[in-house]
Write a protein that binds this DNA or RNA. Structure first.
Lengths: 144, 144
DNA sequence: TTTTCATCTTAGAATTGTTCTAATCTATTG
DNA sequence: CAATAGATTAGAACAATTCTAAGATGAAAA
């Protein structure tokens, strides 16, 4: 992971018909180099600027959506108004901290979802999202 | 429910320090007069215009948010980009139909969520949202 | 009543997050 | 290296929502 850090990602991009460009590789490093992360487009953009990666906000959006389409990222919707992208691809769910507006994962096994309701005829389940909205025992968010 | 249809709502509004105005009462009728509904602000606005209720979009937003704050509506987030408001206040969850972009309720008892993961220290659960994303067995939404 | 005043509603501007456009640049292939 | 399909970009456009500040209206007092 030190000498040829991008080989697998380069392959992955190529297989999806995406060129392994400067921007895509730099963003991939930010996203995947240090464990599971949850980012919004604006956050990733700010981080890229901090690291002096030359990339536009349009490319941030393009890249996040491409990575999602090729299964490198999962989109999480908790807030209306912005999208979160999650690098953890395992089967899991989320805590949403209502005061700080941040996400944390928890494993699916930690929640006993033992069955599913009857699905309407002709439909199939794409995915089940569980959001556990939590807050500090003392504070009440003004948005409630 | 025919002779004094608004009495309880008028009381409810008064208790919350909100005047039972023409607009608020008309919107309440649209929202609560015929069973459980899921609406977005734009949908409710279109419906109000169809019924020739004189109301601005700003008031639609104000009213939906006030009703939510006083517990007459629940907000549901499934889509990033817009908010849904649900008149069903019972403990329940949602199917989100990814092709048509619509919501349907299902009772909590139909899903066996028997426990909860360990909540981070000092936090308490505000609410648990389960979204079962479904689609027609043949179609695949282009957004995936 | 009429007056008063806090609250409401409104049009339109502003804000925010995201996508689009069309011009320029770059990675890949021959 | 040249050609070209695909990528990046700045800025415009867009969609959902909130804000602003000016005029309207409901409730309570006089």
């Amino acid at each position: 992971m030190k000498d040829r850090p991008y080989t697998s990602l380069i392959e992955c991009l190529r297989e999806a018909g995406l060129r392994p460009t400067r921007q895509r590789l730099a963003l991939a490093r930010l996203l995947f180099d240090e464990g599971d992360r949850h980012v919004t487009a604006e956050q990733l953009y700010a981080e890229a600027r901090r690291e002096e990666i030359p990339v536009s906000l349009a490319t941030i959006y393009n890249t996040l959506n491409q990575f999602r389409k090729m299964g490198l990222l999962r989109e999480v919707v908790v807030d209306s108004g912005r999208s979160w992208f999650d690098t953890n691809l395992d089967d899991h769910h989320h805590f949403f901290h209502e005061v700080s507006g941040t996400l944390t994962d928890f494993r699916t096994e930690d929640l006993a979802v033992k069955g599913l309701p009857t699905i309407p005829a002709g439909m199939e389940v794409d995915r089940v999202d569980v959001i556990v909205r939590i807050r500090d025992s003392r504070q009440t968010p003004s948005t409630l």
